[in-house]
Design a protein around this nucleic acid. Structure first.
Lengths: 139, 139
DNA sequence: GTATCTGCAAAACATTTGCAATTCT
DNA sequence: AGAATTGCAAATGTTTTGCAGATAC
């Protein structure tokens, strides 16, 4: 089952023109299994338990590569830390300013489909909300 | 005329509960005169020509203060540099991925008025577009 | 055997902080 | 004088880069 996942990811990376090294497969699988928009640091702390030789440099370069190939998505919602999202389909994000968690918001909006606005060609639309989540409201 | 502007800003800062030092007035006036979403570094390079004693620390602390008081707006559209926007009214932004310029987009969207979404209380909505601007298209 | 991938250490940035000096009233 | 503002230098945190060694095909 886990093996099967690895094989599937391996094939997918190949199809996208990315040589599927063990590290790359592992990092992608981590994003698939942890859809809570982890940072490089979080990925490193977790994954290096299982793969002690893994370095941050490799995580950085792998994520840049996957982003360039549109297999994952960078989220720049706040602060100066980049987060990564396994889900590349158009969706919005919500960040709770108290607990810092980021949630996916699956709203439909015509803004995601805009191809031109004023004189500009649009390639990508980001919609971010900031506020307080249910849990933090009740504290 | 210029003096008059300074006086107006001074009064406005006072009204918002901010002691209007010369540096604070100058930084706010810079944002008013340069609505192209400058970074701290840009502000520093430009303003320190006129005010040689001005330090980056002061610019950082002043902008944090103005942001907290909702007099200016932080823009976190890309990379790891914060940009500042004189215009605090709801509007979207477009970033050209070729030249790096950021443009204001004055679209109307009900998303700017959302107060609740799913279980969350929304305080702020950001809408960002990325793509290529007219000038870069024709290069 | 040659390309690529990886990891370390250093560098490069943006931003924050501690603290002493300056300024303002 | 007393409180707030400012500036320097150092610290912090994230990301990038150069290069040497390891790995893969």
């Amino acid at each position: 089952m886990n093996k099967k996942n690895m094989e599937e990811i391996k094939q997918m990376l190949k199809d996208k023109g990315i040589p599927p090294s063990y590290h790359r497969i592992s990092i992608y699988k981590y994003l698939k299994d942890n859809i809570n928009h982890p940072t490089v640091d979080t990925i490193y702390k977790d994954l290096s338990k299982k793969i002690p030789t893994l370095s941050k440099t490799t995580i950085y370069s792998t994520l840049k590569l996957l982003t360039r190939k549109n297999i994952v998505q960078e989220i720049l919602i706040d602060d100066n830390e980049v987060r990564y999202d396994y889900n590349t389909k158009p969706h919005a994000h919500f960040k709770c300013t108290k607990c810092g968690k980021i949630y996916d918001i699956f709203i439909k909006s015509e803004l995601f489909n805009i191809k031109n606005i004023e004189d500009f060609s649009v390639n990508h639309t980001d919609i971010f909300f900031r506020g307080v989540c249910e849990k933090c409201k009740n504290k």
